[in-house]
Simulated scan of single mutants.
Amino acid sequence: MLAKHKNLIYKTIIAIILIILSIVVYIFFTPIRDVVNLLVISFIIAYTLKPLRNYLSDRLNISAKKSSLLIILLFLLAFVGLLYCIVPSILNESGNFGIMLDSIEEYILTLASRFKIDRLPIFETIYIQVGEKINMVLSSASTNLVDNMISIGENIIGLAVVPITTYYLLADGHLIYNKLLLVFPTDKRVLIKNINNNIDKILSRYILSQLLLSLIIGVLSFVLLLVLRIKFPLVLSIINAIANIIPYFGPIIGGVPIIFMALTGSVTKGLLAAIGVFLIQQVEGNFLAPKITGDSTNMHPIIIIILLILGEKIGGVIGMVLVVPIAVIIKVIYDDIDYYLF
């Protein structure tokens, strides 16, 4: 059996070496990393929108290209409208940041005085150190503000390519797939198609479950924000919904902006927002995720946590979003090769 698949083993080893080299090039060459990120983002968006494209094509009796163009235009209009609504409000509210810090400081001093710990040496030490740390963070943020704005301006040109690439992946994805099949030998194309079908089945189930879970979290967050009368309820709930795609760490990333914005109103509102976010996380982790996601990844939680840390080190937030689906794809490929060839 080993001799029979000796050639395949050699090819597998070569493929692994090429993958490792590709990862090294991705990590250490910024231009290539930027291009790959844009292509990956476009592919994810196109893959997610593919069911909607099929639905519109069947419902409106139009071609895949026309339905793809319609989807892209609708999403661009929605994105521009969202920016038009939130950017002026964010700029107007940015002046409340200092007021929020003063309110938090006053609240802490009031609590310390009430419990008679304001004169303790340890409290004064912690209070001074935390204050210095906050000042350092604010100073660093203000220093890097111009650099960040320039970086965002440079990335706008790159991000403008994403809708175009997404359109072509949606409209001509099947043609690209058929062209890629020609790279493989004829006798291996059936295997490639089987692997692709299994990846599509499992990955679609994973993505749909995450989207449904994120939608529920977004609605719950929106209700919480409306009840507490926190500013920017739609934007913050969307951020929390998107962040929820990241397993385990996502709810924390999405909850911080909600609590932060609540603190601009009052400390009490911030505490209520923190409790509300915690309750939503508990509902998501203990009830919704097990029911909706189930065993779509079929991986142990500790493996997922390790993958998330590795993804963050390699690609930041985008790496954390992509690492689990990539791991699912690799696992499916390994299982299928093991099943069909060995």
Score class of each variant (00 low, 15 high):
Thr125Ala: 14
Phe184His: 04
Lys201Gln: 11
Leu234Thr: 11
Val36Ala: 15
Leu2Glu: 11
Ile230Leu: 00
Glu93Leu: 13
Leu203Pro: 05
Ser221Lys: 02
Ala241Ser: 14
Leu70Thr: 08
Leu18Ala: 11
Ala15Met: 09
Ile230Ser: 05
Ser22Tyr: 07
Asn135Ser: 15
His300Ala: 04
Leu308Arg: 02
Ile157Asp: 03
Ile128Trp: 11
Phe184Ile: 09
Ala273His: 09
Lys188Glu: 14
Asn286Trp: 09
Lys269Gln: 10
Leu212Tyr: 10
Thr110Arg: 02
Lys188Phe: 13
Gly319Lys: 06
Ser63Trp: 04
Val25Gly: 05
Ser113Tyr: 01
Ile44Val: 14
Ile16Trp: 06
Ile152Ser: 08
Val161Asn: 01
Ile306Pro: 00
Pro88Gly: 08
Tyr55Ala: 06
Val36Cys: 12
Ile304Thr: 00
Leu213Asn: 08
Thr143Lys: 13
Leu307Asn: 00
Glu284Cys: 03
Ile16Val: 08
Leu236His: 09
Tyr177Trp: 05
Leu225Met: 06
Phe28Met: 02
Phe97Trp: 10
Pro301Phe: 02
Ile303Val: 11
Tyr248Ser: 05
Asn148Val: 03
Ile44Pro: 02
Asn148Lys: 12
Ser63Gln: 01
Ser204Val: 04
Leu2Pro: 00
Ser89Glu: 14
Leu52Asn: 05
Ile72Asp: 01
